[in-house]
Design a protein around this nucleic acid. Structure first.
Length: 286
DNA sequence: CGCATTTCCTGGTAGC
DNA sequence: TGCTACCAGGAAATGC
C-alpha cells in the first residue's frame, strides 16, 4: 500500500477532508486540521502508514503526521467504495484526486497528530524496528527475546521485538523454523532466534512481492487481490497434511488468537500449569 | 511497569 | 426461509 501511495500522494496538498460515518474518538481525530497540509513523504513502520505533513503556516518543515492503520478490514481506494466509507480526502495537483478510506469493522485508524506525538498510539510509541529495515538485526532481536517468559507468538504480535508481524505471518514464520507458538521466548536456542529472524523477513518480503494476503476483502489501492494466500503453509490449513512431514495440521488458541501448527514440526513446550481461563465460566455479558 | 484479559466492530456462516 | 449464536483479530483499554 505504501508503495502504491507514494507516487500518488507525495507533494500533494489537502483541499478537504471529512469523516463519513466515522464515530467520534481518537481513531479519526484531527481530520479537521488536515486541509492546507502537504504530504512530504509516505513512510511505513510496521503496520502503521505514516505521512509527514507540512502545514500552511509551517516555517519549521514537517509539523504534523497522518497516521493510517488498516486494522482488519481497512482499505484505501482511489474510487468510492460501495459501503462503510469512513474518510474522504480531496487533493489538489495537476490531476485533482480523492482518496477514500473504507473500513467495515472500524478497527482501522486515520489520525492526524503533531509530528512525533504518539501519546494516543501506545503501540506505535513502543514499536520495534520494522522487519524489512536493516535496523532489525539478529542481535537486537535476541536481546528483545532474552529473559522473556512470554510465549513467542504473543510476543511477536506485540510489535515490540519487531514491527509488522500479524497473526498470519507469525504462524507462517514459526512453522518455517519449527518453533511452537507457546514456547517461552527465552527458551529459543540461538540458532532458532537466528532462523526466526530470517523467516520473519522472508515471509514478509515474499508476501509484499505478491501484494499481500487476500483472505476475503483485502484489496490493493488499485483494487487487486494479493496472492500470498496460495503460499500459506499452515494458516487456514488445519486438518490438512503438513507440507514438510505429512502430519495433520492443528488449530489452537494462543493469546485469544487462532493459531495454526504442525504438532510434529513444532513440538509444544511442557505445560507449566493448568490455565484458569480454560475452565473459567464464560462472561455473563452477551 | 509488566503482563493478561477484555473490548471494540460487522459480515459471514453454522445450526436449528 | 429466517432466526440466533458465534467466529474472525489489530490495538487500546482495563485489570491486577
Amino acid at each position: 500500500m505504501r508503495r502504491e501511495l507514494e507516487p500518488w500522494l507525495t507533494g500533494r496538498t489537502v483541499l478537504a477532508a471529512e469523516r463519513v460515518d466515522a464515530p467520534p474518538g481518537p481513531k479519526y481525530a484531527g481530520l479537521e486540521g488536515l486541509p492546507g497540509h502537504r504530504i512530504e513523504a509516505v513512510t511505513r513502520r510496521g503496520k502503521f502508514l505514516i505521512m509527514p505533513l507540512r502545514g500552511p503556516a509551517s516555517t519549521a518543515g514537517v509539523d504534523a503526521e497522518l497516521i493510517v492503520h488498516l486494522g482488519m478490514t481497512g482499505v484505501v481506494r482511489r474510487t468510492p467504495p460501495p459501503g462503510h466509507l469512513r474518510v474522504r480526502v480531496a487533493f489538489d495537483g495537476l490531476e485533482p484526486a480523492t482518496l477514500y478510506f473504507q473500513d467495515v469493522r472500524r478497527f482501522g485508524r486515520f489520525t492526524l497528530v503533531s509530528a512525533g506525538d504518539y501519546r494516543s498510539l501506545p503501540t506505535l510509541a513502543s514499536l520495534g524496528p520494522d522487519a524489512l529495515d536493516p535496523a532489525f538485526t539478529v542481535g537486537g532481536f535476541r536481546r528483545a527475546l532474552a529473559g522473556s517468559e512470554v510465549a513467542i507468538k504473543p510476543l511477536l504480535l506485540s510489535q515490540r521485538p519487531v514491527a509488522g508481524v500479524g497473526n498470519i505471518y507469525a504462524d507462517e514464520a514459526l512453522w518455517r523454523v519449527g518453533v511452537h507458538p507457546l514456547r517461552p521466548a527465552r527458551t529459543l536456542s540461538r540458532a532458532q532466534v537466528v532462523a526466526l529472524h530470517g523467516a520473519v523477513i522472508d515471509v514478509l518480503e515474499e508476501s509484499v512481492a505478491l501484494q499481500g494476503t487476500t483472505l476475503y476483502d483485502y484489496r490493493t489501492v488499485n483494487g487487486e487481490v494479493g496472492s500470498f494466500l496460495e503460499r500459506l503453509a499452515v494458516y487456514g490449513h488445519d486438518g490438512e497434511p503438513c507440507a514438510r512431514c505429512g502430519t495433520t495440521l492443528e488449530k489452537l488458541v494462543v493469546g485469544q488468537r487462532g493459531t495454526h501448527v504442525c504438532p510434529r514440526c513444532q513440538v509444544a513446550p511442557r505445560r507449566r500449569r493448568t490455565r484458569r481461563a480454560a475452565t473459567r465460566v464464560p462472561s455473563r455479558t452477551r
